Computed example of a mutant assay.
Amino acid sequence: MVTSTFVYDGDCAFCTRCAQFVERRIPTGAQVVPWQFADLAALRLTADECAEAVQWAGADGSRAAGPDAIARLLAGSSAPWRLAGAVLRLPPVRAAAWPLYRWVARNRHRMPGGTAACAVPTAPRD
């Protein structure tokens, strides 16, 4: 059975803590995996995409990044989380979510649980 996959940066302590929260508190049928251990080719993702933002690779072939990926993850969960995902997809909320997501991504090393290793690299990864 093919399942949807939510991909995050496993090198980032803040991202890992968020993913652990998802695994503990948000019931979803999706796999939640760090991109460093995912089969990116099978998911049709690149390392650069995954370093830039969390990614959603849907079992139906759909793809999404950043807050759109989070909304897709929440859409497959229980009622309160599905509602949060639906709100995140509303055009005005989605428009505000992207700049906020980018700010968090740029500052994730300053977030609770973050470390210097969490900083988004300024040079492309090999």
Results as ranks from 00 to 15, higher is better:
48 D>S: 12
99 P>N: 04
84 A>K: 07
113 G>S: 04
113 G>F: 13
59 A>Q: 12
106 R>H: 12
68 D>Y: 10
64 A>Q: 11
67 P>A: 12
83 L>H: 01
99 P>V: 01
57 A>I: 07
88 L>W: 10
70 I>Y: 13
77 S>N: 12
117 A>L: 10
93 V>I: 08
75 A>G: 15
103 W>C: 06
115 T>H: 06
99 P>Y: 03
84 A>Q: 11
85 G>D: 12
97 A>Y: 03
79 A>D: 12
99 P>A: 00
110 R>V: 09
48 D>V: 10
106 R>S: 10
66 G>R: 03
100 L>M: 05
95 A>W: 14
65 A>Y: 10
88 L>T: 03
60 D>P: 06
114 G>I: 12
114 G>F: 06
75 A>N: 01
102 R>A: 11
81 W>M: 14
98 W>G: 00
70 I>H: 12
90 L>S: 01
65 A>N: 13
114 G>C: 03
98 W>C: 02
79 A>V: 11
109 H>N: 15
83 L>M: 15
106 R>I: 06
76 G>W: 15
61 G>Q: 03
98 W>Q: 06
115 T>R: 15
60 D>T: 09
60 D>M: 00
63 R>H: 15
76 G>S: 07
106 R>E: 14
101 Y>A: 10
112 P>T: 05
93 V>R: 02
91 P>Q: 06
93 V>W: 06
63 R>Y: 14
105 A>V: 12
86 A>E: 09
105 A>W: 13
58 G>R: 04
96 A>D: 02
62 S>L: 06
86 A>V: 00
100 L>P: 00
116 A>E: 13
48 D>M: 04
73 L>Y: 02
76 G>F: 10
106 R>N: 14
113 G>Q: 05
66 G>W: 14
95 A>N: 01
89 R>Y: 03
91 P>N: 03
49 E>F: 07
111 M>E: 07
71 A>H: 02
69 A>R: 02
88 L>R: 02
71 A>C: 11
66 G>L: 11
61 G>A: 07
111 M>Q: 13
50 C>D: 02
117 A>E: 12
81 W>G: 11
56 W>T: 03
50 C>Q: 00
115 T>M: 10
90 L>C: 04
73 L>N: 07
109 H>Y: 15
